[in-house]
Design a binder for these strands. Structure first.
Length: 449
RNA sequence: GGAGGAGUGGCCGAGCGGUUGAAGGCGCUGCUCUCGAAAAGCAGUAUAUGGGAAACCGUAUCGCGAGUUCGAAUCUCGCCUCCUCCGCCA
């Protein structure tokens, strides 16, 4: 796997490839225009730096000596010349950056080319679908009937796509959360997953649990390249507040280290965040309206990691392995999808979805997604790591080259959708629901709800 | 919400208009000395970016962004962050 360095130098040298791959992802980018602006920008920069050098030379005087009026006149001339050039640069640069930021990350070579999610490829099916000797119900038929979910009153209070989750389902959610935290903070468990999957050379370093802020500044949201589409986001407070509700813990975990240079021995940094997430679900009217599948507010356990640029792909595969492990522990049948170019998202190089089988609904439901961003987000956020020298040692503390880190994020578990899958797969003829064995200790031995 | 104080290199800390990318110290690296180590001495020790095959040269960066000035780490304004006191509050 080759690291895709999507900086302007890469684009300069691979203009056709970048245009082609952008198109595959559904983004039309005028690369020719971008390169023109780049040239323009660099010419101006050279000129400006020349004038600045002149200015610096001129304003370097012997201490105590006053500059001559001739020098001051000369300085004034340079000043206005510089102001003029800088104005030009600002406008060229703005346009340049706008176009540069519009270029999506390059898909990894194994991402199938496709124009819609219909072209995602199923790469694996795992787990036995349950056989019922009765007609299985949907999660909604079961939960509503038993008073575990109340959407009517929620609609009264907050509108559609909100719900009151009640009773045993609340306990079940916290059991799920505990189970996931225990899994991801155990080095031993992670080692087991690594061994079983056969991944080589990957650290079993445990995840650090995090409760992140649920709001995020406009600039940071944009730097993550997750602000768009804005109509999907909730803006909060007054204009000056400049804050949005996050749509995933990724949005506030990813920029945690922005602007920082990270020591080699601190990597990988692995975080497992728990947060309520908010989405407007614009344009989904009439879709997934039954039950709690698509809500404006839902809770999610999200994995996020920062690794050096050699380990990004491996970390991505590890994240998927963790997701599969969790589904297997819960004994929920699922399939794995490799997302196609149209579906992986602008900052992504690769994306995987896990979908749980819902016997009541008779279809699959996306429960997990894993995103690999290479250094794309890190470049926008300014997250670097020190680079090892040829001897494998870190360079001395004051002098070191740096690289952009690779970022990965992935759902560890979305309790809402996991609950849907559990209800449908573990239902009994009398409408009760068995509790997955792995969760029982977290529910004081309770075996059904 | 009210009143104050502070943000300088990996860390501590000087500088408050003119060769200051930034004194001094700590740390780190190399060398000298030593059988070795410590100590001491000497030297080196930020990042980004443009140009260059390279050596190297230019430019930017003292929380961030604007402004004043021939010249800004230093002056002015806005923003961010942190600290102290008062008020309010889960």
């Amino acid at each position: 796997y080759n690291t895709v360095m999507l900086d302007i130098r890469f684009i300069r040298e691979n203009a056709d490839l970048v245009a082609e791959k952008s198109k595959q992802k559904g983004y039309e980018v005028d690369i020719q225009k971008l390169l023109e602006l780049d040239n323009n920008r660099r010419e101006l920069l050279t000129e400006i730096e020349q004038v600045r050098a002149d200015r610096n030379r001129l304003s370097t005087i012997v201490v105590g000596e006053q500059p001559s009026s001739h020098k001051i006149e000369e300085g004034k001339k340079l000043k206005s010349e510089l102001a003029n050039l800088e104005d030009q640069l600002t406008s060229v640069n703005d346009e340049f950056l706008k176009l540069l930021k519009a270029v999506p990350n390059m898909p990894s070579d194994d991402v199938p080319v496709g124009i819609s999610e219909a072209e995602n490829k199923v790469t694996k099916e795992q787990g036995d679908k349950p056989n019922f000797d009765f007609k299985p119900k949907t999660h909604w038929e079961i939960a509503e009937g038993r008073g575990l979910i109340d959407k009517v009153r929620a609609a009264k209070v907050a509108g559609s796509r909100f719900a009151y989750i009640k009773g045993d389902l609340v306990k079940l959610q916290f059991a799920l959360v505990q189970f996931v935290f225990d899994t991801l903070t155990s080095e031993e468990t992670l080692k087991g997953i690594i061994d079983k999957t056969g991944l080589q050379n990957i650290s079993p370093k445990p995840f650090t649990p995090v409760l992140p802020p649920l709001m995020i500044r406009t600039e940071v949201f944009d730097a993550m390249d997750r602000l768009e589409p804005r109509e999907e986001r909730y803006k909060v407070g007054s204009e000056e507040d400049n804050l949005w509700l996050q749509g995933s813990a990724e949005h506030t975990l990813g920029p945690m280290y922005m602007g920082e240079i990270i020591d080699i021995d601190e990597l990988p940094i692995r975080l497992i965040g728990y947060a309520s997430s908010f989405r407007r679900e614009a344009g989904t009217y009439g879709k997934d309206t039954e039950g709690i599948i698509r809500m404006h507010q839902f809770d999610k356990l999200e994995m996020e990691s920062f690794v050096n640029s050699e380990g990004g792909m491996l970390e991505h595969l590890f994240f998927v392995a963790i997701q599969e492990y969790i589904m297997q522990q819960l004994k929920i049948p699922y399939r794995v999808l490799q997302k196609c170019t149209a579906d992986i998202g602008k900052p992504n190089a690769r994306g995987i979805d896990l979908e749980a089988w819902l016997p009541g609904a008779g279809n699959y439901l996306e429960t997990h997604t894993a995103d690999f961003m290479t250094d794309y987000q890190a470049r926008r956020l300014g997250i670097r790591n020190k680079v090892l020298n040829t001897g494998g040692q870190e360079h001395d503390t004051k002098s070191f080259p740096t690289n952009f880190v690779h970022t990965n994020d992935a759902t560890a578990l979305a309790p809402g959708r996991a609950i849907v899958a559990i209800i449908e797969n573990y239902q009994k003829p009398d409408g009760s629901v068995e509790i997955p064995e792995i969760l029982r200790t977290y529910m004081h031995g309770q075996t059904s709800l």
